[in-house]
């Protein structure tokens, strides 16, 4: 690695002195390098690094593979916990589920949508992905079961009832289904005045157990569909999916999204984003998501603009870690 001093001037890095008469700032400006050079093969460095990283990647892949936990479905949920499924189904029908009153972008529930001070960006964006849980999650899927006369009658009766009648049936059923049991392959709910609602929820539970509901919620105008918004929202309204996530240390209180099933490192680079959810005031705020996103937006912008922020750009010079990096240079 011979030093090639004669190249020094020619190869000097452009300095700060951009021609302006600004005052010298050591955190912004540099003097042109007038020292020596040594031979260095960048292509060889890249090829060596590429080979080394490739070997390391293959070794990690062979040793640890990658996680692939089977997804949950409405079928697996309703087979594992039919009563829990029915309890969620009635909340989709009566509009009390988390999705039903989520607000934008799924519906226009008054005052729903998080705010940043007086501004709600969610409400400004609006309900661009409309979801009517009663229609989309319950009634329309049931209407596809055309070979069940009793269900057809129940749907007709429900549709022709007044809102008040529907609400009375739904409220009665929602109270009763909390005491429901699953006996001999059927949902058993205490006797009551549920009108057609009992038939509808029972049919939906059976439909889910058969696997047909998973497909019905993907129904679109096309043959192909790749949008899983509806089945995921339905799944997320129940506790089954959250319980599975909890057993895999994926709950929000367990640093949620940055983790991955099993013992894999996951998205560890999201640690700062996830951290805010663990500490006050974010952890107690009803606007936690919007506050965390606003905080991260400011921090990301600051990170990008570090070279222009007085004080922040002085940190490297003050902490002097560079002396370790350039120790050979300073020693010589």
């Amino acid at each position: 690695m011979a030093v090639v001093d004669q190249l020094s001037k020619e190869k000097s890095s452009p300095n700060s002195s951009d021609g302006s008469k600004r005052k010298w700032n050591p955190d912004r400006d540099v003097k042109p390098w007038s020292g020596g050079y040594f031979r260095y093969d960048l292509i060889k460095e890249f090829v060596t690094a590429l080979a080394g990283v490739a070997i390391l990647v293959v070794a990690l892949a062979v040793l640890f593979s990658s996680p692939d936990k089977t997804p949950v479905t409405l079928q697996s949920w309703s087979r594992s916990d039919p009563v829990g499924f029915a309890q969620t189904a009635i909340t989709e029908l009566d509009g009390t589920s988390a999705t039903a009153h989520y607000g934008p972008p799924y519906n226009t529930t008054p005052n729903a949508g998080q705010t940043l001070g007086p501004v709600s960006l969610a409400r400004i964006a609006g309900a661009r992905i409309p979801v009517n849980t009663a229609e989309s999650f319950v009634i329309q899927p049931l209407e596809t079961l055309s070979d069940q006369p009793s269900l057809a009658t129940a749907l007709k009766r429900f549709a022709s009832a007044t809102s008040s009648e529907q609400a009375n049936w739904e409220n009665s059923y929602e109270s009763a289904v909390s005491k429901a049991t699953w006996n001999s392959g059927a949902l058993s709910v205490p006797q009551g005045s549920y009108g057609p609602v009992a038939t509808m929820v029972s049919s939906l539970t059976n439909m889910a157990r058969s696997g047909a509901l998973d497909g019905a919620l993907l129904r679109s105008h096309q043959f192909y569909d790749t949008n899983y918004t509806k089945p995921l929202l339905f799944l997320n309204d129940g506790s089954y999916m959250a319980n599975v996530a909890g057993s895999e240390h994926l709950q929000g209180t367990q640093w949620g999204m940055m983790n991955e099933t099993g013992s894999f490192p996951g998205q560890s680079w999201l640690w700062l984003y996830t951290m805010w959810y663990q500490i006050p005031p974010f952890s107690h705020s009803g606007n936690a998501d919007a506050l965390v996103w606003a905080t991260m937006a400011i921090l990301t912008l600051a990170f990008i603009l570090v070279p222009f922020i007085p004080g922040v750009r002085s940190i490297p010079r003050r902490i002097k870690l560079y002396k370790l990096i350039w120790r050979d240079h300073y020693r010589s």
Binding site: P105, L121, A122, A125, G126, R128, I129, N227, Y228, L233
Partner: peptide, 14 residues
């Protein structure tokens, strides 16, 4: 969704 991005960037749309 809390900052309006979810209306355009739907993470549940595979």
């Amino acid at each position: 969704n809390s900052v309006g991005i979810g209306a355009y960037f739907n993470v549940m749309n595979f």
